[in-house]
């Protein structure tokens, strides 16, 4: 079974985000970048499947600027076999990424796509679902557990109010949630091996995909700063404030 793991290069989760003065986006100059944490979980799961013998090959794919190659290398150092970079300097929207991924899935003949449920930059939570729709494949989103069986794959989804268990036919698209696993950090021998692994580079044109934007960003603004809280001296005062000031009860 060949597993494709799409990954995204995002601003490191520990960096405090600042909005650019001209409100066109967030500041990325001189900001530490890293693999999207949900993508790391997907890579970890794929590598575990490889180690368990259920996956034969793990291919990391990323769409983005040339530096996305670094993110792919991080996945290779975790234990993936090789990488595919779809190089584009343009800002890629979820639908464009889903179309690019569809082209790579077909080119590679992948049996399973394992990806993060969303990227922590845009928080769109769309690409996996769009990809499944474009491919006409079953999808299991927000999964916290997966089990390969003879007929397909059994996944546990984290949904509002509980867990949902689905049996999916293969091939399928899975998007992973936080509790699926704890990603490893690369070992020195694997870092050294990652150097020799190949990364093939394509452009959107090579894959015949039109990535021109369909959305227009009008402006990006930071959320208003949180006001300091107040201490109330009784439950009655709290209820009063919730009812009459916050108007939530």
């Amino acid at each position: 079974m060949k597993v494709l793991v799409p990954v995204k290069r995002v601003i490191d989760a520990n960096v405090k985000i600042r909005v650019k003065a001209d409100q066109t986006g967030v500041e990325t100059a001189n900001v530490k970048m890293a693999m999207n944490p949900f993508c790391e979980i997907a890579v970890e799961e794929a590598v575990r499947m490889k180690e368990a013998g259920t996956a034969s090959e793990v291919v990391i794919v990323s769409a983005g600027a040339a530096q996305a190659q670094e993110t792919i290398r991080t996945g290779l150092a975790m234990g993936a076999d090789r990488g595919v970079l779809i190089q584009s300097e343009a800002a890629l929207e979820p639908l464009a990424v889903a179309k690019l991924l569809k082209a790579v899935v077909e080119k590679e003949g992948a049996d399973l796509v394992l990806m993060g449920k969303q990227a922590i930059d845009g928080d769109n939570n769309q690409t996996g679902q769009m990809l499944a729709a474009l491919l006409g494949w079953p999808q299991g989103t927000f999964i916290s557990k997966l089990e390969k069986n003879d007929s397909g794959i059994k996944v546990t989804r984290e949904v509002d109010g509980g867990l949902e268990i689905l049996d999916l036919k293969m091939p399928a698209v899975l998007t992973v949630d936080l509790r699926l696993n704890e990603p490893r950090y690369a070992s020195l021998p694997n870092i050294m091996k990652a150097k020799k692994k190949t990364i093939d580079t394509f452009s959107p044109e090579d894959l015949g995909v039109d990535v021109s934007p369909r959305l227009e960003t009008i402006k990006v603004v930071a959320p208003p700063p949180r006001k300091a809280g107040v201490m109330v001296d009784s439950v009655a005062a709290l209820v009063d404030k919730l009812r009459n000031e916050a108007k939530v009860i």
């Binding site: 890293a34 670094e70 290398r73 991080t74 150092a77 950090y185 690369a186 070992s187 020195l188 870092i191 050294m192 990652a194 150097k195």
Partner: peptide
């Protein structure tokens, strides 16, 4: 790249 990955790890 290896040095960067080593530092991260």
């Amino acid at each position: 790249t290896e040095q960067r990955l080593l530092v991260e790890s």
